[in-house]
Design a protein around this nucleic acid. Structure first.
Length: 302
DNA sequence: ATCCAGGAACTGT
DNA sequence: ACAGTTCATGGA
């Protein structure tokens, strides 16, 4: 992590392959998003660090991400944790030089890599949020998925109101572990999804699932195996969580309908590609499957 | 109306 | 191992 602490703000120095505006485009894809807000080219997001609420304002100046604190100034130790969160959020540890080198020679990715240069996978550092968002997104359209997420947050998340603007946190697993199936069904969650979500909240409350213990596993394959052992988490969700929470650049959610549609569009096909056709295309992406996927998802918002 | 959506568990062979 | 079925609702 490359960062500096000033008296009233933090500066984060991203790697060369980074474009703040491109990341903003992706973050702005739903007008139902409650977990961050855009205003005048800045991102506002509420975080909870060491049990205290911290509102951050992110901007881009002099090739650095400037993090300000409009609500109150956190301690030096908390500032370090805020910097770590932002570093993870924008996936700043990945060195994309190899990705662009590969993409330049790839007929599918070539144009996208230039068009979206500097876009990085927008991550979900919080494991509970990543797992629940994967479950919400299963087998429903993205608009409705955002509706469900918004309802979940509004009913069970903490919020902070500053100068008339309300900022939200994703609900904690402790809170979700305490609610009933009916509470979620009332919000139009299916019974099945309500079971999965409350089940995961309880497992995390009992510390049967923690990000820390999963990170101790020797390789990504073992983490995937642990994830798919969780009820409600299948291959697609496991790969999604690997990309968005564990920074795996080789994960490839091949069953993803969005990915299939993006490829269909880019290749001018009449139908969606088959799994075999996708594997063939992905041979050239080896080592960068997650970034190829993310850029293809981005292409759906043109 | 009709199809299907950023799947997964369950059931039967 | 593998294929078929069920879940269940809103968006386009």
């Amino acid at each position: 992590m490359n960062w500096k602490l000033d008296s009233t703000y933090i500066q984060i120095i991203p790697p060369k392959e980074f474009d703040f505006q491109e990341c903003l485009v992706f973050l702005n894809r739903s007008n139902q998003e409650l977990l961050h807000q855009m205003k005048d080219g800045h991102i506002y997001k509420l975080l909870k660090i060491d049990e205290s609420l911290i509102l951050v304002k992110l901007g881009y100046e002099n090739h650095m991400i400037k993090v300000e604190f409009p609500y109150h100034q956190p301690s030096e130790e908390s500032c370090r944790k805020v910097a770590e969160y932002v570093w993870e959020w924008f996936d700043l540890d990945s060195d994309l030089a190899g990705f662009y080198e590969m993409a330049a020679k790839d007929k599918v990715l070539n144009k996208m890599a230039q068009q979206y240069y500097g876009l990085r996978i927008l991550c979900i550092p919080d494991l509970f949020e990543a797992l629940i968002w994967a479950i919400i997104g299963q087998q429903i359209n993205l608009t409705f998925a955002y509706t469900l997420k918004r309802r979940l947050i509004e009913h069970f998340g903490e919020s902070l109101t500053v100068n008339g603007d309300t900022f939200w946190l994703f609900p904690s697993y402790k809170k979700i572990a305490s609610i009933d199936l009916e509470d979620l069904k009332k919000l139009q969650f299916t019974g099945r999804k309500a079971e999965y979500i409350i089940g995961i909240a309880n497992s995390m409350k009992n510390e049967e699932i923690t990000k820390e213990s999963l990170l101790l596993q020797q390789d990504n394959q073992k983490i995937v195996k642990s994830l798919t052992a969780i009820r409600g988490i299948g291959p697609w969700s496991a790969d999604y969580v690997m990309m968005k929470c564990f920074h795996s650049i080789t994960s490839f959610p091949i069953g993803d309908v969005g990915l299939q549609n993006a490829l269909k569009n880019r290749l001018g096909m009449e139908r969606k590609p088959t799994v075999e056709e996708m594997k063939k295309l992905a041979e050239n992406w080896e080592g960068w499957e997650a970034y190829a996927t993310f850029y293809l998802w981005r292409s759906l918002y043109e």
